[in-house]
Amino acid sequence: MIEFSNWDLLRNLLLAARWTVLLSLTAFIGGGLVGLLLTAMRLTRRRALHWFVRLYVEVFQGTPLLMQLFLVFFGLSLMGFDISAWAAAAIALTLFTSAFLTEIWRGCIDTLPKGQWEASRCLGLSFTQTLKNIILPQAIRVALAPTVGFSVQVIKGTALASIIGFVELTKAGTMLNNATFEPFKIFTMVALIYFLLCYPLSLASQRLEKKFNGAR
Results as ranks from 00 to 15, higher is better:
48 A>H: 01
55 L>S: 13
215 A>F: 09
169 L>C: 08
51 W>K: 05
199 Y>F: 09
163 I>V: 15
76 L>C: 10
77 S>I: 15
65 L>Q: 05
26 T>R: 02
27 A>I: 06
51 W>Q: 09
126 S>E: 09
28 F>V: 09
125 L>M: 15
3 E>G: 03
181 F>T: 09
52 F>A: 12
74 F>A: 15
155 I>D: 01
66 L>V: 15
173 G>Q: 12
39 T>A: 13
80 G>K: 03
169 L>R: 06
34 V>K: 00
134 I>K: 01
78 L>T: 07
110 D>Q: 15
185 K>P: 12
93 L>V: 09
87 A>S: 14
178 N>D: 11
5 S>Y: 04
184 F>V: 15
215 A>P: 00
21 V>L: 13
131 L>V: 11
88 A>K: 10
64 P>K: 04
34 V>P: 09
102 T>W: 02
193 I>W: 05
163 I>D: 01
147 T>L: 04
62 G>P: 08
57 V>C: 12
154 V>G: 02
155 I>E: 05
171 K>Q: 14
69 L>K: 10
143 A>H: 07
19 W>M: 08
93 L>E: 10
178 N>F: 07
141 R>L: 12
63 T>D: 07
193 I>K: 04
111 T>R: 11
72 V>P: 12
131 L>D: 04
213 N>H: 07
60 F>D: 02
82 D>M: 05
215 A>S: 10
122 C>F: 00
24 S>Q: 09
120 S>L: 11
51 W>N: 06
35 G>D: 00
128 T>L: 10
16 A>I: 04
25 L>V: 15
163 I>T: 15
16 A>N: 05
37 L>N: 01
99 A>Y: 04
204 A>G: 01
202 S>V: 12
23 L>F: 01
154 V>D: 02
174 T>K: 09
142 V>W: 04
74 F>I: 15
86 W>H: 05
153 Q>A: 07
